[in-house]
Design a protein around this nucleic acid. Structure first.
Length: 578
DNA sequence: GCCGTTTTCGGCCCGACTGTTTTCAGTCG
């Protein structure tokens, strides 16, 4: 019984209630679902330890929802939910994934046409049944068809590193247009979430004509596959790579407010609005307003910059990566925000591969590129393992050491460290003998086989490896590949405790589809006093660019420079290793 | 259904765009 399961049911109840136009309850269920999904501890553990009272302590969960969770834990069912499903037996998840179709439409289509699934919906569209229903028309019908087609083509979200660089190129082009004043990517891209659902670009302009020209350019770009909407302040398109892309145009006096608003997250913004209301102010995407004017908006007090917005609300500016309503607002009010690590703060990179194992470039090529990236040191960590072809043996490791010594002589103010990524065997022993590992500067250990162990076995396996005095870093600790492979079963709290006890560093792997540890685990590690290394895991010189994604993830986990060992000079970094 | 440094009752974030209407409902972010 996972938190995701429970959250999922609460989301669905929220949708069912919204169908019937029940006031306020949908949002209450939705909030509870969001909080439960983000919870570190499992809800069933909370119930086991603290009972009903424990459930009530979960934020946004009161008596009503707590009873339902209790019922689900005890019986595996929630009567009210079963009744809702029976009353409107539709595949909610499927249908609400269709863009533009919400609870009201789902209910109407079920009542009128008995549509229960996306397949039913597709059939109805093709037979032109939907356009005859009151409130729908030919346009709605066509839009639903488009949305269904997209749904079938793509999974919805994209790993950030998969589209970020393309989006930035479009941003650069729009930046150069006449009439574009300020420009900013907002939304989940600015918050640097590990995956994003769409892109949001914000542009400020001096006048209406400039706005029209920019909108015109946007909807006519060669990358555009479809135009959803085209207005003077907002246009919405789909790119040929299937990514949805919104452009918003605002006057300069509202740029800061719009930047704040569209960066989100939604929950962060709701909290800010509440603070505004308490102060007798109104916050929206055009600024902060006081009083009422005939137009209804009141008089704008601020809006030009984000800093002003936060300041008026009594807050220190909050970095975009932290705006998730997970304590940052309170920390800001109390002036206790950490000074999180910056994008130029790394001095070194402690995991990468060369042609000695499965990398594309030589040691020297990797070193030169790292220097260009502004780094002062790197560790070469080729695979030390038995199960694949691309790896180095103990003897080769020692030979590689000689090449590193030779290469090091070519550089001033740059250091190549000797390392290895050694496989953790099924029982927690390492693939390489200790007397070889002892000679390396940096040893990272990682799991590359037998992912489907039980949670307990896997946890013990990894903890045993961390207890090895030669293991400095646990590489990609949970083994997930975003949208490809889930993390192996792991008791992350135990792993973090063991890391603290054994002085093992946990890696935050920056590779775009790893980003392992994920942000909430990063924060747990920090709070436990465990050190982190942010590594590229580069298999070619082009992969160093992903360090940015790892730093972003670290920022989302509130890490400071002092928490990240490769943000330290090389001597200090080496001293703290085992 | 949840919540409380105005409150245990009475509030609950807010605006743009579309498609359907002829003043608005639904959806989205």
């Amino acid at each position: 019984m996972t938190n995701q399961e429970i959250a999922h049911i609460l989301y669905n109840i929220s949708e069912y209630l919204a169908m019937e136009d029940v006031p306020f309850k949908p949002r209450a269920y939705e909030k509870a679902a969001i909080n439960i999904e983000a919870l570190e501890e499992s809800v069933s553990d909370i119930y086991k330890k603290q009972g009903f009272k424990g459930l009530e302590k979960i934020s946004a969960v009161g008596k009503g929802i707590a009873y339902k969770i209790e019922e689900y834990i005890k019986t595996g069912k929630i009567k009210e939910y079963e009744a809702l499903k029976k009353k409107t037996p539709v595949k909610l998840d499927e249908l609400s994934a269709v863009e533009g179709v919400g609870p009201k439409s789902i209910l109407k289509l079920y009542k009128e046409l008995k549509i229960k699934t996306v397949k039913d919906m597709e059939r109805a569209v093709k037979n032109k049944k939907i356009e005859n229903i009151e409130g729908f028309g030919p346009k709605s019908q066509e839009n639903i068809l488009m949305a269904i087609n997209f749904l079938q083509k793509s999974g919805g979200r994209f790993p950030l590193g998969y589209i970020l660089y393309d989006i930035r190129r479009i941003e650069e082009r729009i930046k150069k247009l006449r009439g574009a004043k300020k420009i900013l990517l907002t939304g989940s891209i600015r918050r640097m979430k590990e995956t994003i659902g769409d892109a949001d670009l914000l542009v400020s302009v001096a006048n209406k004509k400039a706005a029209e020209e920019i909108m015109d350019y946007f909807i006519n770009m060669p990358e555009v596959a479809h135009i959803y909407s085209h207005g003077t302040t907002r246009s919405s398109i789909k790119l040929k790579n299937h990514l949805d892309f919104d452009l918003r145009v605002v006057p300069e006096k509202s740029f800061g407010a719009a930047a704040q608003y569209f960066t989100g997250s939604k929950d962060h913004n709701i909290e800010l609005r509440k603070i505004a209301i308490k102060k007798g102010l109104k916050l929206n995407e055009y600024g902060i307003f006081r009083g009422k004017t005939p137009q209804g908006r009141g008089r704008q007090i601020v809006g030009r910059t984000e800093e002003e917005i936060y300041k008026i609300l009594g807050l220190k500016n909050i970095e975009p990566e932290m705006r998730e309503n997970t304590g940052e607002i309170e920390a800001s009010q109390k002036n206790r925000l950490p000074k999180i690590i910056g994008y130029n703060d790394l001095c070194g990179d402690l995991q990468m591969h060369t042609t000695w194992s499965d990398g594309q470039n030589s040691i020297e090529e990797m070193a030169k590129k790292a220097m260009q990236m502004g780094l002062e040191y790197i560790a070469i960590t080729d695979h030390v393992r038995g199960s694949f072809n691309h790896n180095v043996s103990g003897k080769e490791l020692l030979n590689q050491g000689k090449e590193i010594d030779k290469t090091n002589k070519k550089f001033k103010n740059f250091k190549i460290l000797k390392g290895g990524e050694v496989d953790i065997l099924n029982d927690g022993r390492l693939f390489m003998k200790d007397d070889v590992l002892k000679k390396l500067d940096i040893v990272g250990a990682s799991v590359h086989s037998n992912f489907k162990m039980s949670k307990q076995q896997m946890t013990e396996r990894i903890i045993r490896a961390m207890k090895n005095p030669n293991v400095d870093i646990l590489f990609h600790p949970t083994g997930r590949l975003i949208q490809m492979r889930p993390a192996y079963e792991l008791d992350i709290e135990k792993i973090i405790r063991a890391a603290k006890e054994t002085k093992t560093v946990l890696e935050l792997n920056s590779y775009f589809n790893r980003l392992d540890l994920k942000d909430e685990y990063v924060r747990m590690a920090k709070n436990a006093g465990v050190k982190i290394s942010i590594d590229s895991d580069a298999h070619s010189v082009s992969h160093f660019q992903y360090l940015e994604l790892g730093i972003a993830q670290a920022r989302r986990g509130w890490l400071e420079k002092k928490d990240v060992i490769n943000a330290w000079p090389v001597d200090k970094m080496l001293k703290m290793l085992k």
